[in-house]
Nucleic acid binder design. Sequence first.
DNA 1: CCTGACGTTGCATACGTATGCGGATACCGC
DNA 2: GCGGTATCCGCATACGTATGCAACGTCAGG
Lengths: 335, 335
Amino acid sequence: MTRVTTSKDVAKAAGVSQPTVSRALAGHPQVSPATRERVRKAAQELGYVPQESGRVLRSRRTRRIAVVSSPDDLLNPFHPQLIVPLHQALTAAGYRTTLLAETEDAAVLAQLTDGSVDGVVLTATDTGSAVPRHLAASGVPHVLVNRLVPEEGHPSCVADNRQGAADIAALVAGLGHTEVALVLGPRRLSTSLDREAGFRSVLASGRSVRTRVLRGGHDHATGVAAAQSLLDTAHRPTAILCASDEIALGVLHEARLRGVAVPGELTVTGFDDIPMAGWEPYALTTVRHDAGRMAAEAVRLLLSQLSPDADGAAPESVVLHADVVLRGTHAPPAP
Amino acid sequence: MTRVTTSKDVAKAAGVSQPTVSRALAGHPQVSPATRERVRKAAQELGYVPQESGRVLRSRRTRRIAVVSSPDDLLNPFHPQLIVPLHQALTAAGYRTTLLAETEDAAVLAQLTDGSVDGVVLTATDTGSAVPRHLAASGVPHVLVNRLVPEEGHPSCVADNRQGAADIAALVAGLGHTEVALVLGPRRLSTSLDREAGFRSVLASGRSVRTRVLRGGHDHATGVAAAQSLLDTAHRPTAILCASDEIALGVLHEARLRGVAVPGELTVTGFDDIPMAGWEPYALTTVRHDAGRMAAEAVRLLLSQLSPDADGAAPESVVLHADVVLRGTHAPPAP
DNA sequence: CCTGACGTTGCATACGTATGCGGATACCGC
DNA sequence: GCGGTATCCGCATACGTATGCAACGTCAGG
């Protein structure tokens, strides 16, 4: 690889000094239009691109935000709906985005605290993760999206999973179901825990509702397995509330495979409103949390930390309402 | 934000000079075990993380690879299957990964040529993109994965889309279908074009096969729309070959909605073998290209460019065999 | 014609890290 | 006890960029 062209090369080509190149390209007003144009042209011809390492070292600003996900979540159909608008919002605000999908806390932290990013958006945080704490300790601006950690004090934007779960549970209970099963996700995710709490808050208060609980991942296979075990029992539930749409689709598939009519014999609900939930053959009744708004709010919270003025403000936490989406997989229980 | 701790701070704390800190933490042999330990401890206590900008500026190496995708492709179920193993392979090789999802060539290029990455993996390249050419011009090591550009000379690793398409077309033709429809993807993607060529190479040679062609995106809605238009016609096809699994699922859904039996009355095939294709209710006959191997080969090709020695070698292009996956959506045409 | 002000540019420098080179110390052999 | 060598460490410096400050030239006003 040949040598990279630097601002010095441009300076020589334009017949000016290196600082003048820097000022001209930065649009500084104290450089004459003539030289500015000469520099612009020279830079263009040489294909000059300001080197990030130099700029960052000098200016202490990277104009770059890290979005932290995980390999698991990248494979989850809901996640891109969050990541894409995040990326767009950050781009619109003049920041570059780099997406991390690390699993080990140590590896993530090294990349977030080495000055290579101005701020961090955490989208796939386990409840046990130490990353938010360390970021706070290092003074790195950050915001939690979608999932929370138990500790208070971190800026965050999440959907009201508890409320959404309670609402859809109320819907099902209101239809008259008394034999209900819950298929929940992993305990290490705040979304799972909150949805569980929401489900239970309603079902526990209904006196005559019997509730069974299964637990697994947020994926399709979990739904299939759950349905297999639930539909085998003599005394099978008339409604299955799932902690994610993918689980619900697995349940739906297995139910149909066994000839169990949905919603005639079995009510099934999901959570997330992934694109597939709206597909004709599913028409899944579920809970929508607006990933676009979640992303926009998160970026707002992050940028407010990056603005030079208000830095003494208390961390703000936004909770968005989650809406029940009525489609075709719920009905009163068969008599 | 308070000041960040630097190697100078560690030096002062450990009672040594700054260069010694650098050498000790880099594991240089010419530093005594005692000092090395002292430095390690001081660095640990101060929470010192070497700043990337300084290291890169000095060493001209970032140990960082950019993986370029696009917002569209992030929403595509096949894509994460490629990105996740790419990330794992790069991590295993000691590189950090940053994922870009930019659409504009200019914005992408600025991030790839400013010295912030050692190399680039392009996963979602349009045939019309100028990015590969500019990377070559700037001497940035890179590799194309999954999709190609028309120009030769770029290292690349793709599946043999043409061969895979030809094989599945041969399967369908061999079953005796003579009324076949193709649902193809966008012209700007090499994968679409190659699959089209593969389909046609077989169907054109079969004398009595009548072929209709529809074109759209690689998504579910395209499949639904295509099926609506195809199944409405009096003289409807007995087989629909789709350029992606998502399209095929859309076709399947629409067919089932209309009570058209698959595979009894209609054969449907896909391409990609996304996870959903294997789900019980679909059991889609399709073509698999091994994203894991593709990623591994791509990383190998990229790393070979980064090794200091062999840099005069000609760019290598790897083409992987695509396997037809026989499931349950193909059958001979009804008499 | 001189002085002052302004507009434009260059000089010097700092950011944090890594490394060539020379110096210091200790240790060995004679 | 002296020269030599090996071991370990610090000094000086360079990477590319951005910016405070000084200097330059020009022009207007007195």
